[in-house]
Amino acid sequence: MSADIHNLVGAYAVDAVDDAERAAFELHLADCAECRAEVASLRAAAEDLSLLAETAPPASLKQSVMAGIATIRPEPPVTRPTAAEPERAPATISEPAPKGPATDATVVRLSSWRRKPATWLAAAAAAIAIAAGGLVWSPWSGPDQPMSPTQQVVAAEDAQRFEKTVDGARATIVRSPSLGKAVLIADNMPSAPAGKDFQLWLQRPDGSMVSAGLMPHGRSDTVTVMLEGDAATATGAGITLEPAGGSPQPTSSPMALFAFT
């Protein structure tokens, strides 16, 4: 990953990043143990600063909080997908693979996100939990018919598969560097909530995120979408929930990120 994004580690540790930078940096973090360790150590140092701000809260805070927790069920632990789901095909490796051959699929395990109480996660989890697990490959057309552009990507000799599991649902990105294209295949993807769209992103080598289009609406079992933009030079891809019509930059934390490593 570029030295430029690595240098964001301090700003990230103290939340001094905007949403797009956070998304890009978390993509980097998923792949960089060194940065994860530095974030943790810098956070611990920054949080010592809070000793300088310590202030007794008003008594009403404890009353309202204790009343609040009585009505809230603590969420269950986040179980690792690998513990709950057996490995599937060799095409989908579910452990964060160390830098393997380029054809290996790598799941980005976003454990750092999952520890966050961000509301998007609850919403996304609720939305995706209803989707059945398992990826169903579309029945490709017979050999006599010309392949569609998406089929060409999936069938390309240098096709790489990157799979992401979110609460039992799976999304797979297939990228062909030679074709410069990537395709997202999502199984039983729920519709975006009213007034929202699922937006796709490609990450540039400098860490910025560039829109790769919107997920189509509708409820077909398997959604196959060609990502717009140059997938050959992209270093990753992501999916966010955005206001209808999409955004120039991600405005919410990603539901899924894929590192093209």
Binding site: L61, G68, I69, I72, E75, P117
Partner: peptide, 15 residues
């Protein structure tokens, strides 16, 4: 602070 504390309660299993 109330939101944060309720989140801590709700997501405590994630620590």
């Amino acid at each position: 602070a109330q939101e944060a504390l309720l989140d801590i309660w709700r997501t405590s299993a994630r620590f």
